[in-house]
Simulated scan of single mutants.
Amino acid sequence: MFPNLGIPGLFSFKTVDVITPAVAALLGLGINQGAYTSEVIRAGLLSVDSGQYEAAKSIGMTRLTSLRRIVFPQAMRVIIPPLGNEFIGMVKATSLASVIQFSEILHNAQNIYYANSRVIELLMVAAFWYLVIVSVLTPAQALLERRFSRGVGAAR
C-alpha cells in the first residue's frame, strides 16, 4: 500500500493519483537529464578564461551583465555540442517511459503489436519515427553550433 500525501486532518491525496505515469516519466527523465545538463553548463562556464571576468569587472559591469554579455556567449560555443547530444539522447531515452505505461512512441507500438502480433514491423515503425525526430534535431544542433562559432578563428 502506498502512503497518502498531504497534511493529515486537512487534506490528503493518494500517491497513485498524484504521481501519474506522465509525472513519473517527467520526474525521472528530468532529474536525470538535469544532472548531466548542469555539469555541461558548468564545464562551459569554466572554459571561459578568468581574464574575461576581470576585464568585464574593470569596465564596471556587474557580475550578471558580464555573464550575459561576455562570458555566456563565449561559453555557448563549448556548451552547445554536448548539450545537443544530451538532448538527442534524452529523446531516445523517452522509450524507457513505456515501462511505466506512459503513452509514447514505443508504448503505442507495443499496444498495437499486442493486438495484431506484428512485433517486428511495429518496432521498425517506432525506430523510423525516432530516426525522423533525431534527423530533424541534428541539423538544428549544427545550425546552433555554427551560429555560436561565428568569429572564432577568423582573425588568423
Rank of each mutant, 00 (worst) to 15 (best):
F11E: 04
K14G: 14
K14W: 10
A22D: 08
A24C: 05
A25H: 04
A25S: 15
L26W: 03
I31N: 00
T37M: 12
T37K: 02
E39M: 07
I41G: 00
R42I: 00
R42W: 00
L45D: 06
L46V: 14
L46M: 14
G60Q: 09
M61S: 11
R63S: 15
T65C: 05
R68G: 07
F72H: 02
Q74C: 10
E86R: 09
F87V: 05
I88G: 04
G89L: 01
K92M: 00
S95L: 10
S95W: 00
A97F: 15
V99N: 05
I100C: 01
I100M: 00
S103Q: 14
E104S: 01
E104G: 11
E104L: 08
A109S: 09
A109P: 11
A109R: 08
Q110C: 00
N111H: 13
A115Q: 15
N116S: 05
S117E: 06
S117V: 07
R118T: 06
R118P: 13
R118A: 10
I120W: 14
I120L: 15
I120F: 15
L122Q: 14
Y130D: 04
I133D: 08
V134P: 07
L137Q: 06
P139I: 10
Q141W: 08
A142E: 13
L143R: 15
R146P: 04
R147M: 12
S149D: 11
V152S: 12
